[in-house]
Protein backbone atom coordinates (compact mmCIF):
# COMPACT_ATOMS: atom_id res chain seq x y z
CA UNK A 1 0.00 0.00 0.00
CA UNK A 2 1.65 3.25 -1.07
CA UNK A 3 2.03 5.75 1.73
CA UNK A 4 0.79 9.24 1.15
CA UNK A 5 4.29 10.53 0.54
CA UNK A 6 5.03 7.80 -2.03
CA UNK A 7 1.80 8.52 -3.86
CA UNK A 8 2.49 12.20 -4.42
CA UNK A 9 6.28 12.18 -4.07
CA UNK A 10 6.62 14.54 -1.18
CA UNK A 11 9.86 14.95 0.66
CA UNK A 12 9.99 14.06 4.35
CA UNK A 13 13.40 15.12 5.68
CA UNK A 14 12.61 14.02 9.22
CA UNK A 15 12.50 10.44 8.00
CA UNK A 16 15.53 10.51 5.72
CA UNK A 17 18.13 9.19 8.15
CA UNK A 18 15.82 6.43 9.34
CA UNK A 19 14.73 5.39 5.87
CA UNK A 20 17.73 5.98 3.66
CA UNK A 21 21.01 6.44 5.54
CA UNK A 22 21.75 2.74 5.61
CA UNK A 23 21.11 2.07 1.95
CA UNK A 24 22.94 5.21 0.84
CA UNK A 25 25.92 4.13 2.95
CA UNK A 26 25.87 0.60 1.55
CA UNK A 27 25.81 2.03 -1.97
CA UNK A 28 28.62 4.52 -1.34
CA UNK A 29 31.05 2.24 0.50
CA UNK A 30 32.09 0.01 -2.43
CA UNK A 31 32.54 3.13 -4.52
CA UNK A 32 34.93 5.04 -2.29
CA UNK A 33 38.06 4.36 -0.23
CA UNK A 34 36.63 3.68 3.18
CA UNK A 35 33.67 3.96 5.53
CA UNK A 36 34.70 7.44 6.75
CA UNK A 37 34.43 8.80 3.23
CA UNK A 38 31.20 6.89 2.67
CA UNK A 39 29.68 8.31 5.85
CA UNK A 40 30.80 11.80 4.90
CA UNK A 41 29.23 11.55 1.49
CA UNK A 42 25.92 10.32 2.90
CA UNK A 43 25.86 13.25 5.29
CA UNK A 44 26.70 15.67 2.50
CA UNK A 45 23.93 14.14 0.45
CA UNK A 46 21.35 14.80 3.16
CA UNK A 47 22.58 18.36 3.65
CA UNK A 48 22.56 19.08 -0.07
CA UNK A 49 19.08 17.64 -0.29
CA UNK A 50 17.88 19.86 2.55
CA UNK A 51 19.40 22.89 0.89
CA UNK A 52 17.88 21.97 -2.41
CA UNK A 53 14.47 20.99 -1.09
CA UNK A 54 12.79 23.68 -3.15
CA UNK A 55 14.16 22.02 -6.23
CA UNK A 56 12.60 18.64 -5.48
CA UNK A 57 9.68 18.59 -7.82
CA UNK A 58 8.40 15.14 -6.96
CA UNK A 59 8.80 13.89 -10.52
CA UNK A 60 10.97 11.13 -9.16
CA UNK A 61 10.72 9.40 -5.84
CA UNK A 62 12.48 10.83 -2.79
CA UNK A 63 14.78 7.80 -2.81
CA UNK A 64 15.75 8.23 -6.47
CA UNK A 65 16.41 11.90 -5.88
CA UNK A 66 18.67 11.26 -2.88
CA UNK A 67 20.58 8.59 -4.81
CA UNK A 68 21.18 10.98 -7.69
CA UNK A 69 22.58 13.55 -5.26
CA UNK A 70 24.82 10.86 -3.80
CA UNK A 71 26.04 9.98 -7.28
CA UNK A 72 27.10 13.61 -7.81
CA UNK A 73 28.81 13.64 -4.43
CA UNK A 74 30.78 10.52 -5.35
CA UNK A 75 31.91 12.03 -8.65
CA UNK A 76 32.83 15.28 -6.85
CA UNK A 77 34.86 13.25 -4.41
CA UNK A 78 36.92 11.69 -7.19
CA UNK A 79 37.36 15.11 -8.82
CA UNK A 80 38.69 16.63 -5.59
CA UNK A 81 40.93 13.64 -4.94
CA UNK A 82 42.44 13.93 -8.41
CA UNK A 83 43.13 17.64 -7.99
CA UNK A 84 44.92 17.01 -4.73
CA UNK A 85 47.23 14.42 -6.21
CA UNK A 86 50.46 15.12 -8.01
CA UNK A 87 49.99 14.80 -11.73
CA UNK A 88 50.30 11.12 -12.48
CA UNK A 89 52.60 10.54 -15.37
CA UNK A 90 51.13 7.50 -17.00
CA UNK A 91 53.58 5.05 -18.40
CA UNK A 92 52.79 4.10 -21.94
CA UNK A 93 50.71 1.06 -21.05
CA UNK A 94 50.66 -0.04 -24.65
CA UNK A 95 54.33 -0.79 -24.37
CA UNK A 96 53.93 -2.71 -21.16
CA UNK A 97 54.01 -6.46 -21.28
CA UNK A 98 50.52 -7.62 -22.03
CA UNK A 99 50.35 -10.70 -19.84
CA UNK A 100 47.09 -11.81 -21.29
CA UNK A 101 48.17 -12.13 -24.89
CA UNK A 102 51.01 -13.59 -26.88
CA UNK A 103 53.13 -11.58 -29.30
CA UNK A 104 50.76 -12.35 -32.12
CA UNK A 105 47.77 -11.08 -30.15
CA UNK A 106 46.28 -14.47 -29.41
CA UNK A 107 45.23 -15.44 -25.87
CA UNK A 108 48.09 -16.62 -23.65
CA UNK A 109 47.63 -20.23 -22.54
CA UNK A 110 47.26 -19.48 -18.83
CA UNK A 111 44.83 -16.64 -19.46
CA UNK A 112 42.19 -18.14 -21.67
CA UNK A 113 38.61 -17.64 -20.48
CA UNK A 114 36.96 -20.74 -19.05
CA UNK A 115 33.33 -21.56 -18.59
CA UNK A 116 31.54 -20.29 -15.57
CA UNK A 117 27.85 -20.24 -14.96
CA UNK A 118 25.81 -17.20 -15.71
CA UNK A 119 24.35 -15.83 -12.53
CA UNK A 120 20.82 -17.11 -12.98
CA UNK A 121 19.22 -16.75 -9.61
CA UNK A 122 19.36 -14.11 -6.88
CA UNK A 123 21.80 -16.13 -4.77
CA UNK A 124 24.25 -16.55 -7.66
CA UNK A 125 23.91 -12.88 -8.52
CA UNK A 126 24.70 -11.89 -4.94
CA UNK A 127 27.73 -14.14 -5.08
CA UNK A 128 29.11 -12.63 -8.24
CA UNK A 129 28.46 -9.12 -6.90
CA UNK A 130 30.48 -9.99 -3.81
CA UNK A 131 33.28 -11.34 -5.96
CA UNK A 132 33.25 -8.23 -8.14
CA UNK A 133 33.52 -6.08 -5.01
CA UNK A 134 36.52 -8.07 -3.80
CA UNK A 135 38.24 -8.10 -7.17
CA UNK A 136 37.63 -4.39 -7.70
CA UNK A 137 39.42 -3.68 -4.42
CA UNK A 138 42.46 -5.46 -5.80
CA UNK A 139 42.79 -3.29 -8.85
CA UNK A 140 45.50 -0.69 -8.69
CA UNK A 141 44.69 2.98 -7.96
CA UNK A 142 43.84 4.58 -11.27
CA UNK A 143 42.51 1.38 -12.78
CA UNK A 144 40.27 0.96 -9.74
CA UNK A 145 38.96 4.52 -10.08
CA UNK A 146 38.19 4.06 -13.75
CA UNK A 147 36.49 0.71 -13.19
CA UNK A 148 34.47 1.98 -10.22
CA UNK A 149 33.25 5.12 -11.95
CA UNK A 150 32.40 3.33 -15.17
CA UNK A 151 30.90 0.07 -13.95
CA UNK A 152 29.70 0.72 -10.41
CA UNK A 153 28.56 4.30 -10.93
CA UNK A 154 27.79 4.20 -14.65
CA UNK A 155 29.54 7.48 -15.42
CA UNK A 156 30.21 8.27 -19.08
CA UNK A 157 33.76 7.88 -20.39
CA UNK A 158 33.88 11.57 -21.33
CA UNK A 159 33.06 12.61 -17.80
CA UNK A 160 35.47 10.07 -16.33
CA UNK A 161 38.28 11.59 -18.38
CA UNK A 162 37.43 15.05 -17.05
CA UNK A 163 37.05 13.91 -13.46
CA UNK A 164 40.27 11.90 -13.38
CA UNK A 165 42.12 14.27 -15.66
CA UNK A 166 43.17 11.61 -18.14
CA UNK A 167 43.15 11.53 -21.93
CA UNK A 168 40.72 9.33 -23.87
CA UNK A 169 43.63 7.17 -24.96
CA UNK A 170 44.64 6.63 -21.34
CA UNK A 171 41.05 5.85 -20.52
CA UNK A 172 40.75 3.11 -23.15
CA UNK A 173 43.97 1.49 -22.05
CA UNK A 174 42.96 1.60 -18.39
CA UNK A 175 39.48 0.27 -18.98
CA UNK A 176 40.81 -2.46 -21.26
CA UNK A 177 43.26 -3.69 -18.65
CA UNK A 178 40.72 -3.33 -15.85
CA UNK A 179 38.24 -5.49 -17.75
CA UNK A 180 40.86 -8.16 -18.43
CA UNK A 181 41.96 -8.17 -14.82
CA UNK A 182 38.44 -8.18 -13.41
CA UNK A 183 37.23 -11.00 -15.64
CA UNK A 184 40.26 -13.08 -14.73
CA UNK A 185 39.85 -12.43 -11.03
CA UNK A 186 36.11 -13.10 -11.07
CA UNK A 187 36.72 -16.37 -12.90
CA UNK A 188 39.39 -17.48 -10.43
CA UNK A 189 37.13 -16.71 -7.47
CA UNK A 190 34.02 -18.34 -8.92
CA UNK A 191 35.80 -21.50 -10.06
CA UNK A 192 37.50 -21.85 -6.69
CA UNK A 193 34.16 -22.77 -5.09
Amino acid sequence: MATKSEAINEANPEKWVELYSSMLFKHALPRVEDSFVAEDLVQETFLAALKGLEGFKGDSSEKTWLFSILKNKIVDHYRKKTRQQAVISMPDLRLMNDDWFNEDGSWAEEKIPHDWDSANNPAERKEIQKVIYWCKDHLKALQQSVFTLKYLEDISSDEICKVLNITPTNYWILIHRARLQMRECVEKMLLKN
Binding site: M23, K26, I128, Q129, V186, E187
Partner: peptide
Protein backbone atom coordinates in the same frame (compact mmCIF):
# COMPACT_ATOMS: atom_id res chain seq x y z
CA UNK B 1 31.45 -12.65 -19.20
CA UNK B 2 32.57 -9.01 -19.34
CA UNK B 3 29.01 -8.02 -20.10
CA UNK B 4 27.79 -9.96 -17.10
CA UNK B 5 30.36 -8.27 -14.88
CA UNK B 6 29.21 -4.91 -16.22
CA UNK B 7 25.58 -5.70 -15.38
CA UNK B 8 26.29 -6.97 -11.88
CA UNK B 9 28.76 -4.21 -11.00
CA UNK B 10 25.95 -1.68 -10.91
CA UNK B 11 24.23 -3.71 -8.20
CA UNK B 12 27.27 -4.02 -5.92
CA UNK B 13 26.44 -2.90 -2.40
CA UNK B 14 28.23 -3.35 0.92
CA UNK B 15 26.01 -6.11 2.28
CA UNK B 16 28.39 -6.91 5.14
CA UNK B 17 28.87 -3.38 6.45
CA UNK B 18 26.48 -1.33 8.52
CA UNK B 19 26.28 2.37 9.14
CA UNK B 20 26.79 2.58 12.93
CA UNK B 21 23.85 3.80 15.02
CA UNK B 22 26.09 6.52 16.44
CA UNK B 23 26.68 7.85 12.95
CA UNK B 24 22.95 7.88 12.25
CA UNK B 25 22.29 9.80 15.45
CA UNK B 26 24.99 12.28 14.49
CA UNK B 27 23.44 12.81 11.09
Amino acid sequence: QSHQIALESKEVVATDSELPEAAKKRM
